[in-house]
Design a protein around this nucleic acid. Structure first.
Lengths: 241, 241
DNA sequence: GAGGGGACGTTACAGACCGTTACACGTTTG
DNA sequence: CAAACGTGTAACGGTCTGTAACGTCCCCTC
C-alpha cells in the first residue's frame, strides 16, 4: 500500500495540466488533476494526496485563497505555481501556508526537484479535505437535501431546521471528519469571520444538537473539541435516485 | 529549554553577512556567521545549528560542493543563496541536498519566509506508515477512533477521555516506539512549543495513565524516560472494516 | 552512606472554556 | 400592528486543564 507519491495538479489550463501530468508520471509519480477548487476538493477526498501543485491564478478563483483555506483544514504540502514573480507575491504565498513556490514559465526539472525537496520534509499525516457531493447526501441514516433545504430523519420524518441551523449542518456535511473552528464555521455559514470572540456558533450548536442528536448531552454526530471547535464524525455519501 | 532557532550564515562577502545577520537577529533568531568552508565547519561543531544559509559562489570554493559534503554528514537544513538564476543551477542545488534556494538580490522578507517554511518542515516528526492511514487504529487490544474521538478498551467498553488526554494519546499513537520530549508533545497536541519549561504534559500523562494503564504506578503502554520524555511501546496497526 | 539536587508523580486549586437558560432585538406573518 | 419566530448577547454553572507546591525516587558527590 506504500507506493509512489500521489500528486494533485490544480490548474485551469488543460494543456499545462496535461504537460505536468505526463511529465510527473514519466518520473514515477501517481498524478491526479483538477481544473478548479471544487474538483480539487473532490480529488482530495477521493485519493490520498501527498502533495498539491496549485496554480496561483485561475479565472473566478484565487489560488492563494484556495491555498489558505486548504491549509486551514489540511496539512498537505502545497507548491504554488504562478506567473507573478514579484517578491511580495512570493512572500504572501509562503505566508499563506504554501511550502514552496515556482514561477511560470518553469523548467520541469526544477518543479520535479522542488517536489522531491518538499516531499522529503513532509512526513505528516494527511488529513482528508471536505466532501462536496451532489444535491442530496446521507449520513448516519439522515438524508439532507441541499436544494430543498430539508432534512429527513432515519425514521423518515421531516425535521424542521431554521436557516441558521441548516447552514451550520451543511457546513459540517461539506467538511466531514475535520475539526472546524468557530471562526471557520462563521466563515462558512455567514461568510464572515468573528471580529471579536463570539458565542453565536455555540448557541446554534446547542439548538442543532437538540434536533439531530439522540442524546444532546452525549453527542455522537458532532463532537466538541476543546480549544479548537467541533467535528462532524459520520461518513457522508451521495444519494442517487 | 527550547530557545530561538540558530542560523548559520556562510558568505564570503562581509557586507552581505552583516546585513543578513542583523536582519535575522532583529527577527528573533540567533545567528552565527562564517566566511568560508572551514569557518562553517567550526561553527557547526561549536554551536547547535538549526539551519544553514549558504552562498552558492565563493572565491576558491564551491558552495554546491560544500552543500553536498555537508549533506553527507548531517541533515541540517540548507538554504542556498546565489546570483545565478538559471534553471539548471536551481535544479542542481536542490538535487545536491539543499532544502531551498534564494536568488540574489533577494527580498529579506522572502528569505525569512523561506527560513520559516524550511524550519517548519525540518522540525516535524516522521510519522510511521502504520499510523498514517486509517481513521481507526488498534494497539494492545485498545481501539482508537481518531474522528469520533473515542477509545474502546480491550474488554469492549468505551473509555471516556477528555480532549487533552485524547490529543496526547493520538500523538503517541502516531509516533509509536520513539521517545518524545515534552516539547515535541506540546507541539503535537497544542501546536506550540514550551516557552519556558512546563509541567502540563506531566499532568496530562498522569490523567491519561490513570485511564488506560492497568497499573498506573507501573505503566506498560507509555513509559517514562528520565531526562528525555515518554515513549509509547505497543505496536499500532490500522483497523479495517 | 549521608547529603543534595534534579526529575518526575501527584494533589489542590484557580481560571478558562463550553453548554445552557433567559431575554432582548429584529424580522416575518397574519 | 400584534404575535410568532429566529438569532445573538449576557450570565450562570459545570467540566477541563495548567500552575503551584510538595513528596519521592534516582543519581551524583563527597
Amino acid at each position: 500500500m506504500n507506493s509512489s507519491p500521489h500528486i494533485l495538479v490544480v490548474d485551469d489550463d488543460r494543456e499545462i495540466r496535461d504537460l505536468i501530468t505526463r511529465f510527473l508520471k514519466k518520473n514515477g509519480y501517481r498524478v491526479e488533476s483538477a481544473a478548479n477548487g471544487r474538483e480539487m476538493q473532490a480529488a482530495l477526498v477521493a485519493a490520498n494526496i501527498d502533495l498539491v501543485v496549485l496554480d496561483r491564478v485561475m479565472p473566478g478563483e484565487d489560488g492563494l485563497e484556495l491555498c489558505r483555506n486548504l491549509r486551514k483544514e489540511s496539512r498537505v504540502p502545497i507548491i504554488l505555481l504562478t506567473l507573478l514573480g514579484s517578491d511580495t507575491d512570493r512572500v504572501v504565498g509562503l505566508e499563506m501556508g504554501a511550502d514552496d513556490y515556482v514561477t511560470k514559465p518553469f523548467n520541469p526539472q526544477e518543479l520535479l526537484a522542488r517536489i522531491k525537496a518538499v516531499l522529503r520534509r513532509a512526513n505528516e499525516l494527511p488529513v482528508k479535505a471536505s466532501a462536496r457531493a451532489g444535491r442530496r447526501v446521507r449520513f448516519a441514516g439522515w438524508v439532507l437535501d441541499r436544494v430543498a433545504r430539508d432534512l429527513t430523519s432515519p425514521e423518515g420524518a421531516l425535521t424542521e431546521l431554521t436557516d441558521g441551523e441548516f447552514d451550520l449542518l451543511v457546513a459540517f456535511v461539506e467538511h466531514p471528519q475535520i475539526a472546524l473552528t468557530r471562526d471557520q464555521l462563521l466563515d462558512l455559514t455567514r461568510g464572515r469571520s468573528a471580529i471579536a470572540f463570539d458565542r453565536s456558533i455555540d448557541m446554534q450548536m446547542t439548538r442543532l444538537r437538540r434536533k439531530i442528536e439522540r442524546d444532546p448531552d452525549q453527542p455522537e454526530l458532532i463532537k466538541t473539541i476543546r480549544n479548537k471547535g467541533y467535528i462532524f464524525t459520520p461518513d457522508v455519501t451521495p444519494v442517487e435516485d
